[in-house]
Every structure is written in C-alpha cells, then in structure tokens.
Design a protein around this nucleic acid. Structure first.
Length: 834
RNA sequence: GCCCGGGUGGCGAAAUUGGCAGACGCACAGGACUUAAAAUCCUGAGGAGGUUCACCUCCGUGUGGGUUCGAGUCCCACCCCGGGUACCA
C-alpha cells in the first residue's frame, strides 16, 4: 500500500477490471428481485457538463446501493442524438450533423467511462441510428393506422430572410437570431399526434403516481388543464347556416354576453377579409397579429387590441344581436378559438369593453353574505342571476345546470369539457431527425410507407443551407415509387420531433439489440416498470407527459401491459453558475475533465453529491471540492496507519474476547462509543440513501471518520484492532455509492479477494445503535432554560418531576402562576407561567 | 402574464411528524509538529450586548401580519431569485 492516495492509478485500474470482468452487465434473472434505475439520456452536445455529472452520479449511487442490497440492477445509458444543435453546429462550423454528433458521442463516452459509472454498455442506444429510428417510423405507422397521427394546419415561426422555420429558441424578442429580421407566424400543414384523446386518462392516472413529486403532478395537472363547462353555438346574423361555437365555464353569465371575440386565426375570419367596409382594417390587424408572439399576446398585462369584423351574432339565450370582434387575447389553441365576452364578469372582457366602449350589463349579483362588487373591475365570482330571462333569481351553480339542459333540448349547445392540453405538433421542417414515413402520390393520395420498406433512411448530407425543409432539396430522397400504383410519388420531407425518440427509449434498453421488433415483450415484462427515473426538473412537463402518453399508446397497441412506465420519479435540481443555467451561450460552462485530473472522479462524485441536496439547485463553486478530497485522503491515511496490524480476514471468525481481553478494561467505554457510532452511521446512511438524501449520508460518513480519529487518539496505544477493522470494512461499503473506486481499492487492501459486485450492504443492529443517555430540553414559556441528561425511555411524569425540580428552572417559575405544562416524551418539557 | 419551485451564518448547507436553529463541509482564527512553509493533527466560532470573560441577557431562518404552550416548518399578503410556457433538450 502506498502512503499517498494515488487516485488516478486506482481509478483507472478498477475501471479496467470492471470492464474486463463485465461487472455491470446484467441479464433477466428470476432468482433475484429486479431494480431498474433510469437516468434521462443525454443530448450529445459536445462534452459532459456538471449537470450530467450530477445526474449520473446520483443515478450511479442508487444503482450501486441497490446492487449491494441484492437487487438485479438494470442501469443503462444512451444518446438522444437527433436535434437542433447539430444543425446549428453544421451551419456554423460546416461540419455535417452526423459526424458532429458521432464525434461528440465518442468524446462523451470516454468521459463517462472515466467517471466510473456502472452502466451496462452493451445496452447503449443512439437514437440517430437506423436501428433505432426505424422503430420511431414503425410506431408512427401504427399510430397513423389508428388515426392517432393526422395532418392539420399549424402556425410556425417563419423568417422571410432565411425562408425557414425557426424554433422558439431561435426567435429573440420577435426577431430571427441569425439576421435580425422580423419573424412572422405562418400556417403550415403539420403532422400531429392525438395526445388529447388521452387527456382524461393522463389526468386520472396522475393519481397512480404516488412516488412522483407533488410539484410535477401539479404542473402536469395544470398543463392538461381540464375545465368543465358548456359549448354553445352562436348563429351569425345574415349568414345562412354559419354558427360559431364557443366554450365557456360560466354559462350562467351568458345573458351578459354583449359581444363575441374570435382568435385572429379563427377560420371564419378569413372569409370576411373582403368586406368593403371592415376588410381593410381586419387585414391590417391580422398582419399585425402575425408578428405578435403568442405567449406575449395572451399575457394579462398586454394591451388588449381588437377590431370589429362588421358582423353580428345572435346570442341564442337572450336573442340579442351582438357584434363579433377579433382580438389578440383569444387564442385559437384553447377551447374553440372563440369566446362569448361577458365584460361584467370577466376581467379581460371588462378591460376590452371599456377600451372599445361596449356595454357592460350586470347579470350576476353577489349573494347577501358576499362583498359588494368593486367598481372599475369585473365581478368574476359566483352569485345570483339577474337580467337573465327565465333564469333570473337562480344561484350560479344551479343556473349552469339548468341552462346546459336548456341548451341541449333547444339544440343550441350542451355540457362540455375542455382541456388546455393541445395535440402534439409532431413535424419539423428540419434535417436532423427521423424521416416521417409517408408518401404522397398525385393519384393515390397520402400513403404510409409499407412496413417492409422501413427504415426510410435519412440521407447523409451537408446541404443544410437556408430555405425550406432540407430534405426537400434532395431529389434522390424525395422521388419514390408510389407503393400503391407504382407511379412517381413524393416522400414526406418533414422529420419527427425529437421528443419521439425519448418517449420510448427506456423500453429499448431492456433488449437494445433486437432487430425484429421495437421491443422484446418478455424483457419489458421482466424489467418494467422503471423503479426510479432521475432527471432534471426542467423536463417536468413536456418529456414526462409525452412519455406517459406513449406508454398508453403502446399499451393500446398490445405491446406492453402497463398504464404508466415509471413508478418513482426523482427530479434533480439544476446546476447553475452564478445563479444562471449553465450554457454555452452564456459562457459559464464548467468542464469536469480538469476536476477529474486534479482530484479524481471519486472526489468529484463525492463532492457534487455532498454540496447540495439532490432536488435543489446547485450553484457551482470550486470551493469545497478540497474538503471532499481531504476526506478521502483522511480515510486513506487511517487505512495506511493500521492496515498491516489489522487482524486478517481469515482470523475474523475467531473469538473476540482474546483481543479485547488482552488490552484490559480501560478503553471499554470508547470501544462501545465507536461501535455505537458505527451502527448509527450505517442506519443513517441506509435510511438517507433510501430517500435520496445523499448529502446527509455523506456527512454522516464524515462524522464516523472523525469519530475513528477521536477513538484512535483516546485509546492510544491500544485501540481494539478487531473493532477498527470492522469499522473500516463497513466504511468501504458505505462510501461505495459515492466513491466506488476508492471503496474497491480499500476492500482489496483489507484483504478481500472478491469485488464489490459480490459484496453486500452492511446491516446495523438497532440495539448497538441505541444511545445510552438522552438530553431533555426544559423550556419556560418556549425558551430553553436548561438541559437535563437522563436515561432513554424515561416516563413523562418523571420528566415533569425532573424539570420542576431543576434549580436553574426554579428562578424562572418562582412566584409565578403555572398555566400549562407540555411534555414531549423523551425530548422536551415546556412550562408556561404568567 | 400564467403554472411550479426556492430564499436559513462570511459561503455550500442541516433540521423524517410543529419541539434545542446552524449537523457536516468550505473559508477564517488559534495551538501542536517543522529551521521555516506546505501538508497533517487538535481547538474555536450565528449576531449584538453585559459581566471581566468557562456566566448571563437580547436579537436571529427574504418582508409584514396571523394560528399555537411552541413556527425555518402551518395560514394570509408582499418582495426577490430560478425553472417551464408546447420547435432547446
């Protein structure tokens, strides 16, 4: 054993052995309980950053802990390799996306190996390979056949200068990030996936996800945004058969609807643009709206803007003629893209009505016990109906029921449920993604690519310049024989949203090599559900809802027998630098490589898990790394000091009394104290790891090491070597989840011939962990006035007696009247006096 | 704007259920070792004030209120920071 802790030699040595011996390769084994640890797969952006290090070190600590606890652990990794950054890099650096991505993967793989994470690399997947993405295409075809994939018009950010679609990220305050020209909204035919068919189930099944964080459940619930209300058709005056459908959650206010508002994108608006009086202003307004960002447009503090269309509708309840407006604050994506405006009882409608001087009649009055309406504001609460024809006098809730019934019998509407959730806009006018397997034939129409012709290969190209869909510019890709008539046809040139790739990859891990099918069902049956899924909280909505949706689709296709793929979710906090998300554009990325070469992977892994709780954000600072490095060195020195003297493993079974007896009685209390600390620490670390409190688990191990130093000091020159050996043995196991190379080396130095893979997590004895004495706090009027050391299990009566009898307490209560006395068993006495 | 989080010493943080606020670590200070320094080992420490120091008092978990014998923890209002907002992943 060397005196110095040579982390590099140790880490490289064990990484080699783990790989050679295949320590992390797993297979389905019915004799063991399985445990599937999944971390969100990385996007190969270039190099590992500290966010990755944090995520995967946490996952690895869980995987190694569960492995030591006897589970058959599946711990896979792969690459989310399609996406926009590769295309941006291609345009910037003139490197095609394929090679760029593959280079990044190679580099990041090396970095992962250097970190010593326990992945089963034989299951590695890369989503940009035909072996993977052909199954994206296959799934798409199944969904197309079931009507779950469909085309519809959708609006995109369009840059006239580049003649191309921009991602939201590429729009910087309304302008193109490349040439600073104004971005407009443009309608394009787009593929969609019908996630809204599953809206109710996605909402209901959130209740099954007991081991998901509440905040994620809440966010998803709000995202799905179920609202119960009614639909009503408003006939347009002087337009035969034309009716506009609205959705409202406040049918009870319909007599107060004095105008209608349509979203600028509403289809009926297009037909009114030629109106001789209003057409011009209408066209100008719509053009204006094309340049207004959608999130800004709907913001409450955004100035409400609108124009009158020149048309009127008939309020089907009051039979009043009401004007139809178009305005920025109504969105096509929500509800029906049209609202009945009730200015007296909706704040946005109120502001709009005031601005454009529309009538604001009151139809709801507060019930007697409610506050008066505030003037200058809408009254949005429930109350009692007035000026509402036959419904006047009813309470809001009752009126909603009666009015919905009325609408139904009259054939003018009825009860309805609306969701905020929109269908999944699935196509991208980009190159670096999975080609959508669709063929357009002038005579046969839209046709799916026959399954036996999959995959539709993405051609390797560097023709990425500006303008339109890159694939559309590759004739050899576009031209295809029609699978039906054999004539000349065109391929779809849009590619899939990359969220497709990450919606089912975790199934593929269970048999990553299978060529005949997307997944092997027996493998999925064995490994699923995922026992814990660990990833950044920034994925709380999109990825995690698409993934849930996809599982339900797969279930309905008969592929899996699951409603939900993931039983427990852990959302990790972000790694920040100076209070902001680390990103290349901010130039605040910290590279782990330097840290690894200066301190080693174990120190980095240990520190990144020690310095903050895993669910909280971590503002990175180098300070403190030294402390984790010091801890490992301190442990190393203790080992070095005693490793030659420690009783050998072979003699471990021999009688303990021999060793203890020979050193007499004098240090028995120190021995007991250390043994107690050992069992307490094992208990604490075990419990903390079960609830993913890695930071406090590490703190506990540090405390134990401090106790060992104290023990060695106080028992000098005769520490109980048998006990010392037991402590060091246990510590090797306890640090394994955080510093596995160190642990492996430590065990080998202690004489173990078998590696951690064959070891077991230490047990603790609650008897030995029990404290000999406890401290009871005595408060007077809630202030700590004394502390009394006593025995565990003391009764409440005795505690009270001790408290009242304590001389320090006497001066505080003497001559005062006792009002109350609270005893918390084993902990505290509070005497309340006046 | 809307939805979801977070705010505790000089710093990262801890505090399973409402019960001693500040474990553990960093930085700092002092001591031991050393010719010296580094490293190491040991000790100290929330802030203010009093006593002349081993004791005591008050203040203290973003701000202001509230519930409670007792609040970092629960409730109400507000301020600041972060994430998401459907084409970044």
């Amino acid at each position: 054993m060397k005196e110095q802790y040579d982390f590099e030699a140790i880490e490289l040595k064990w990484q080699r052995i783990w790989a050679e011996e295949g320590d992390f390769a797993v297979h389905e084994d019915d004799s063991k309980e399985k445990y599937y640890v999944l971390e969100m797969l990385p996007y190969p952006s270039g190099a590992l950053h500290l966010g990755h290090v944090r995520n995967y070190s946490l996952g690895d600590s869980v995987a190694r802990f569960k492995g030591l606890r006897g589970y058959n652990v599946l711990h896979p990794i792969g690459w989310d390799a399609f996406g926009l950054p590769a295309e941006n890099a291609a345009i910037r650096n003139k490197v095609p996306p394929g090679p760029w991505t593959r280079d990044n993967i190679a580099r990041m793989t090396t970095q992962c190996l250097r970190m010593g994470w326990s992945y089963d690399w034989s299951r590695e997947i890369t989503t940009c390979t035909p072996e993977y993405y052909r199954w994206n295409q296959w799934f798409f075809l199944q969904m197309y056949a079931k009507g779950l994939a469909f085309k519809s018009s959708g609006s995109v950010n369009w840059c006239e200068e580049c003649q191309t679609v921009l991602a939201n990220e590429q729009v910087v305050s309304g302008r193109c990030w490349r040439d600073d020209s104004v971005v407009v909204q443009k309608d394009l035919e787009q593929w969609n996936l019908r996630i809204t068919d599953y809206a109710e189930e996605l909402l209901q099944d959130l209740d099954k996800l007991n081991a998901w964080p509440d905040k994620v459940l809440t966010m998803q619930r709000n995202w799905i945004g179920k609202s119960v209300g009614a639909r009503v058709w408003f006939p347009v005056v002087d337009a035969e058969d034309l009716e506009i459908e609205i959705f409202t959650t406040r049918l009870d206010t319909i007599y107060g609807a004095t105008f209608m508002v349509l979203a600028p994108e509403h289809p009926v608006v297009r037909n009114w643009l030629d109106d001789s009086i209003h057409g011009k202003t209408l066209r100008a307004f719509l053009e204006d709206m094309q340049q207004q960002d959608r999130t800004v447009r709907s913001a409450e503090d955004t100035e409400k803007q609108g124009v009158f269309t020149g048309r009127y509708a008939l309020n089907p309840f009051s039979q009043e003629r009401i004007p139809i407006w178009v305005a920025n604050f109504v969105l096509m994506e929500y509800g029906t893209g049209a609202i009945m405006a009730v200015p007296a009882h909706d704040q946005r409608d109120f502001e709009f009505a005031e601005k454009y001087q529309l009538p604001i009649p009151t139809v709801i009055e507060p019930a007697d016990d409610q506050a008066e309406t505030e003037s200058g504001r809408a009254f949005p609460d429930y109350g009692q109906l007035v000026n509402s024809g036959p419904f006047s006098g009813l309470a809001s809730r009752v009126a909603q029921e009666k009015m919905a019934e009325f609408a139904e019998t009259e054939g003018i509407g009825g009860k309805s449920i609306s969701y905020r959730l929109r269908d999944w806009g699935f196509s991208r006018q980009r190159y670096w993604g999975t080609p959508i397997p669709i063929i357009y034939c002038d005579s046969c129409g839209t046709l799916p690519v026959p399954e036996d012709q999959l995959p539709v290969l993405l051609p390797e190209t560097d023709q990425l310049g500006l303008g339109g869909s890159p694939l559309a510019k590759l004739p050899e890709f576009v031209q295809v024989d029609c699978p039906s008539c054999g004539g000349t046809a065109r391929r779809e040139t849009d590619t899939m949203d990359t969220f497709m790739d990450s919606s089912w990859y975790f199934y593929r891990y269970t048999d990553a090599q299978i060529e005949s099918h997307a997944i092997r069902q027996t493998a999925v049956q064995y490994w699923f559900p995922v026992d814990i899924y660990i990833g950044g909280v920034e994925h709380a909505i999109l990825h995690l809802i698409y993934m849930r949706f996809f599982t339900k689709v797969m279930r309905d296709l008969g592929l899996v027998a699951l409603d939900e793929p993931v039983s427990a979710l852990f959302t990790q906090g972000m790694v920040l630098k100076d209070g902001a998300k680390m990103s290349k554009s901010l130039g605040n990325v910290v590279a782990p490589d330097e840290i690894v070469s200066e301190y080693g992977a174990d120190t980095l892994r240990l520190f990144i898990q020690f310095c903050a709780p895993p669910e909280g954000d971590l503002d990175w600072s180098h300070k403190g790394l030294e402390g984790s490095f010091r801890f490992l060195n301190r442990l190393w020195r203790m080992l070095f000091r005693f490793h030659r003297q420690l009783p050998s493993l072979e003699r471990e079974a021999e009688d303990v009394s021999e060793a203890v007896g020979s050193r007499g009685q004098e240090h028995q209390s120190e021995d007991r104290k250390l043994r107690r600390k050992l069992h307490q620490t094992t208990r604490k670390v075990t419990q903390d790891l079960e609830r993913l409190h890695q930071n406090t688990a590490i703190a506990a191990i540090m405390e134990l090491l401090n106790s060992v130093y104290e023990y060695v000091d106080s028992t000098e020159p005769q520490p109980d070597l048998k006990l010392l050996r037991e402590v060091l043995e246990t510590m090797a196991l306890l640090v394994t989840p955080f510093a596995p190379h160190f642990a492996e080396e430590m065990r080998s130095l202690l004489g173990h011939k078998v590696r951690l893979r064959f070891a077991s997590w230490p047990e603790f004895d609650p008897e030995l962990a029990r404290e000999e004495e406890i401290e009871v706090v005595i408060q007077v009027n809630g202030k700590v006035r004394a502390k009394i050391v006593t025995v565990p299990g003391i009764s409440s009566d005795e505690m009270e007696k001790l408290a009242l009898g304590d001389e320090r307490i006497e001066s505080y209560i003497a001559g005062k009247r006792r009002i109350k006395l609270v005893v918390v068993p084993g902990k505290l006495v509070n005497i309340v006096v006046a």
